[in-house]
Simulated assay, not measured.
Amino acid sequence: MSETLKNAMANSTPAPVMVAGIAIIATRCLSVLMLANELGYDEIANFVHRSAQAWDSTLIFIASQLIFLFELRCAFTLLRGSNRGRWGYVVAQIIVLGYMLMASVGWIYPEIFSIPGETNAQIIHHTLMQKVPDALVLLLLFVPASSRAFFRAR
């Protein structure tokens, strides 16, 4: 019996990975719920309608939905020990951060998901501050020895 418990304990997900996966899922789902609550049905419909006015806005809007779903998928796969989920989340964060910085500074259009600010330094600062929780999740996935060993063993 004790051998069964030892095997179950050896195959369990380490706490930092579990916290990171749950944090990804919770923050993404809660942000959608809070945004929907703040905007209301009419404003959400208006946002979707404005996003569908031009091809570039539509593509950015669809890409944002795909990134959202991709991040959720990465969270579920990394909870099962998939190293691809961990690196997929890293790639998603690089894409999101890159787009947010370029759109906020005005390098690319449309600026659907941009951060307002008076100077470029202020914009970059606000954008990076919004990504602090995601950076902490990445630290939980890559820094603790138990996390590295968990993904290396799979």
Rank of each mutant, 00 (worst) to 15 (best):
119 T>G: 04
103 A>T: 11
90 V>F: 12
111 E>Y: 07
86 R>D: 05
135 A>Y: 12
92 A>P: 07
144 P>E: 01
98 G>S: 09
98 G>H: 08
124 I>F: 07
144 P>M: 05
87 W>V: 03
144 P>S: 00
94 I>N: 02
124 I>A: 12
108 I>H: 11
97 L>C: 04
136 L>T: 03
136 L>V: 14
108 I>S: 10
110 P>D: 10
101 L>M: 12
136 L>N: 03
117 G>S: 06
145 A>H: 11
112 I>T: 15
113 F>T: 02
90 V>Y: 09
137 V>F: 06
134 D>I: 05
89 Y>E: 02
116 P>D: 08
132 V>Q: 05
90 V>W: 03
87 W>H: 11
100 M>V: 15
84 R>E: 12
140 L>G: 06
135 A>W: 12
96 V>R: 14
116 P>Q: 09
132 V>A: 09
104 S>G: 13
91 V>I: 15
122 Q>C: 03
127 T>D: 02
82 S>M: 09
94 I>C: 06
118 E>P: 00
96 V>I: 15
114 S>E: 10
104 S>I: 10
144 P>D: 01
107 W>M: 12
103 A>L: 08
134 D>Y: 15
136 L>K: 07
82 S>D: 11
105 V>Y: 12
109 Y>F: 13
85 G>N: 00
137 V>M: 12
120 N>D: 12
142 F>G: 01
95 I>R: 02
105 V>D: 04
87 W>F: 13
84 R>M: 11
88 G>T: 06
94 I>S: 04
129 M>R: 10
134 D>G: 13
81 G>N: 01
87 W>Y: 14
135 A>L: 14
90 V>R: 06
131 K>N: 07
106 G>P: 01
81 G>I: 02
84 R>A: 14
82 S>Q: 13
126 H>N: 14
111 E>I: 10
105 V>A: 13
84 R>P: 00
131 K>T: 10
138 L>D: 05
